[in-house]
Design a protein around this nucleic acid. Structure first.
Length: 348
DNA sequence: TCTGGGGTCCTGCCGCAC
DNA sequence: TCTGGTGCGGCAGGACCC
């Protein structure tokens, strides 16, 4: 239990069906219709769903689902490509609004943020309502907000009522409102951990909280085990991260059809290398570790890495390392995806 | 038949230096 | 000279996030 004297007031702001809502805002004819944003916008091509409108979700469509599957579930849905530039523009406006309410803001991707209101005198709920109104006025979009003493609980709270929700969780809600939830609701518990816990007979956060710290560390390792022990009890002292530096930058692409021709692979890899070098030059970084990723037709994915003597963003130096890495793969199967990553970034 | 792209962090293993 | 512990960087793979 956190010390009441140091009790924080954290907001988690989560935009509702963000990409779809932006598209519906700019083309009102799409409002109220099943809308799917993802890939190139062509549901007969390779790609997955980034965001589905609430109307599309009624057909069972959800993010990360293959576009082809979504198309089968709802052939009359409207499919649109991802217009990342536009969503980033709207996102910057929203983040700007949030910063007006507190300078302690943590960016969590394009459509989410945490806000620390601990230093503000006014009730957090009042401020949260004002944030929702202002975002609605300035962008026409709705969001769901969670209020709690820490990031972990605030994120769970924002997910409890969607869309356009406002949910408050206090320390006292742990047994009644957190423990009945599925373990999957905890940040950091994905499909693998969920399945593993299920085999142990653990389905809810409360059941997870019945396991000892020692048992969890034994099953999941020091770091993850300790995290699960604390998370199941609603404990999270982690501060908001208001500034961070990138550690890696990468580009990858999935071929429309699996490729066996080495020339085509080499050409695509050279293009990705150029993109990565350009990205680094534009953002003002150099990197030292080059990694090439290959996903074969059976989805088996392998990487080969090479660390250079000195960091660089020169395309010719990176390309030499990229092809050194490529040679180390056994190209027995057709290739589905290739990628280039630069790690060990430092500011120029 | 399907399964994107851009990231972070963790783990296990290896070789190497001390 | 041999052996072993330890710490660390590099590498590969995997889980997870949006």
């Amino acid at each position: 239990m956190e010390n009441p004297d140091s009790m924080r007031r954290i907001l988690h702001i989560d935009m509702d069906a963000f990409f779809a809502a932006v598209e519906q805002r700019r083309n009102p004819e799409l409002t109220g219709k099943p809308l799917v944003i993802g890939g190139s916008g062509d549901p007969t091509k390779r790609g997955v769903v980034s965001t589905a409108s609430y109307e599309a979700r009624k057909f069972g469509i959800h993010s990360a689902m293959p576009l082809k599957t979504a198309h089968k579930l709802c052939p009359h849905a409207v499919f649109l490509p991802v217009d990342y530039e536009e969503y980033a523009r709207v996102s910057r406006r929203i983040k700007g609004i949030l910063r007006e309410f507190s300078p302690i803001m943590e960016d969590v991707g394009i459509d989410e943020a945490f806000l620390d209101l601990s230093q503000r005198d006014r009730p957090a709920e009042e401020i949260a309502r004002e944030i929702k109104t202002k975002i609605k006025q300035e962008t026409g979009l709705t969001c769901s907000i969670g209020i709690a003493p820490n990031k972990l609980l605030a994120k769970i709270a924002s997910d409890m009522q969607k869309p356009d929700g406002l949910t408050i969780i206090t320390e006292g809600d742990r047994e009644d409102r957190i423990w009945p939830l599925a373990v999957r609701k905890l940040w950091g518990v994905g499909p693998k951990t969920e399945a593993y816990l299920k085999e142990m007979g653990i389905g809810t956060i409360g059941e997870l909280a019945s396991l000892s710290r020692e048992r969890l560390i034994e099953e999941f390792g020091e770091s993850h085990g300790r995290y699960l022990y604390e998370a199941s009890r609603g404990i999270d002292e982690s501060p908001l991260v208001t500034h961070w530096e990138p550690k890696s930058t990468s580009r990858e692409t999935t071929f429309e059809r699996d490729v066996g021709n080495w020339q085509i692979i080499a050409k695509a890899l050279a293009g990705l290398t150029r993109d990565v070098a350009n990205d680094m030059k534009q953002s003002g970084y150099k990197g030292r570790t080059v990694t090439v990723k290959v996903r074969f037709s059976d989805f088996e994915t392998h990487t080969r890495a090479k660390t250079l003597e000195a960091s660089t963003n020169a395309v010719n130096e990176i390309r030499t390392a990229v092809f050194d890495c490529l040679k180390r793969f056994e190209m027995k199967k057709k290739v589905r995806l290739i990628g280039v990553k630069m790690g060990g970034l430092e500011k120029v």
